[in-house]
């Protein structure tokens, strides 16, 4: 592992190249997220025997929304305007520090897994506060439900990632990715497999997919995430939609690179970055397809059964860490 780190350090590119890589990652997540959502919609439609909207539908929706005016409810404060901005900014910051395309993003020294987890929490908190701001029944209900689910899924996410950090003896993301690259055998280790299952459960919950939440529901009473963002319109809604898509892209990219780091650009050269970009897209698309297939084949569970599912994820994550400690 030390040798790999030394190799990475020797090939350390300049600060501008790293900032460029970070900007590229943000752009990749911002366009890739909506495309992944479109892909998942397409897979679902095909599996159900429908044609479905085109894969680029997410981007088209964004283009439409961003030209419309924002309408805010009467009783709202500045929070309603700030929440979508914070959501997008936290997603972008997460994308900038996570090694997605290259192992050396802009602030590599500060690219910590816990930072990414808490940036995701920041987005959730911003949206939940935004949901409460209008003072309506649905918004508050959505916030309450989303926070309840988040309160159990965030710990599962944290502990699942800890299992990887314990294995790599570091919580620094580039270190973990580099260590996974250096030890291909780790992928088959029990703690990694357990952590992977836990993380998939978390990703489903955090991005509001079936069986936790139904993103295409039209009945307010059954909504979780959609109820929370009911009051947004126009440019505000565009930001919220983009932010949510970026969360999805970031989480899928994170899972892809933590568990299957092949293809990621280490040296930072243009060709390596291009390969990294293509590899990231392919890996994220594969995971998205799998999640979409899971969605088609399962039914949404009752709200009060969701914590059981997530608690299962949390326990798996704790078992993953324990296995890692015992196997050492």
């Amino acid at each position: 592992m030390t040798a790999t780190l030394a190799a990475l350090g020797a090939a350390s590119p300049g600060i501008w190249a790293r900032i460029g890589a970070s900007v590229l990652q943000v752009a990749a997540v911002a366009t890739g997220g909506p495309l992944l959502l479109g892909l998942m919609g397409k897979v679902r439609a095909r599996a159900e025997g429908r044609v479905g909207p085109p894969v680029t539908q997410g981007l088209r929706d964004l283009r439409k929304l961003i030209r419309k005016e924002a309408i805010r409810a009467e009783h709202t404060s500045a929070v309603s305007g700030l929440a979508p901005l914070v959501l997008v900014a936290s997603g972008a910051m997460g994308a900038a520090v996570t090694p997605l395309v290259t192992t050396r993003p802009a602030i590599a020294g500060g690219a910590d897994v816990f930072v990414v987890v808490y940036l995701l929490l920041m987005g959730s908190v911003a949206l939940a506060l935004g949901g409460l701001d209008a003072g309506t029944a649905f918004g508050g209900m959505g916030s309450s439900r989303a926070m309840t689910i988040g309160a159990i899924s965030e710990p599962a996410l944290l502990v699942a990632i800890l299992a990887l950090a314990v294995q790599a003896h570091s919580s620094n993301l580039p270190d973990i990715v580099a260590a996974s690259l250096a030890h291909p055998g780790w992928l088959a280790s029990p703690q990694r497999l357990l952590a992977l299952v836990a993380l998939v459960v978390v990703v489903i919950a955090e991005t509001g997919r079936i069986p936790v939440d139904n993103p295409s529901t039209h009945l307010e009473l059954t909504m979780i995430h959609e109820a929370m963002i009911l009051e947004y319109a126009g440019t505000d809604l565009a930001l919220v939609t983009l932010g949510e898509a970026m969360r999805l892209g970031l989480l899928l990219g994170l899972v892809a690179n933590l568990f299957f780091p092949w293809g990621i650009g280490g040296s930072g050269g243009p060709l390596a970055v291009l390969v990294g970009l293509v590899a990231l897209g392919a890996k994220a698309a594969a995971i998205a397809t799998l999640i979409a297939l899971v969605e088609v084949s399962t039914a949404k569970v009752r709200l009060f059964r969701v914590p059981e599912l997530l608690a299962g994820g949390f326990v798996l994550a704790v078992v993953a860490v324990t296995t890692g400690l015992v196997a050492r």
Binding site: R67, I71, R72, L85, A89, G234, T235, D236, A238
Partner: peptide
């Protein structure tokens, strides 16, 4: 920086100037 950039984009994106300021309306 992210907040400022995102804010700038949504303030400039609508073509007609009167659409660039949020409007107040009844909650749903």
């Amino acid at each position: 920086a992210g907040i400022v950039v995102a804010w700038g984009v949504i303030r400039l994106a609508p073509r007609r100037a009167e659409l660039r300021r949020p409007r107040r309306a009844e909650a749903w």
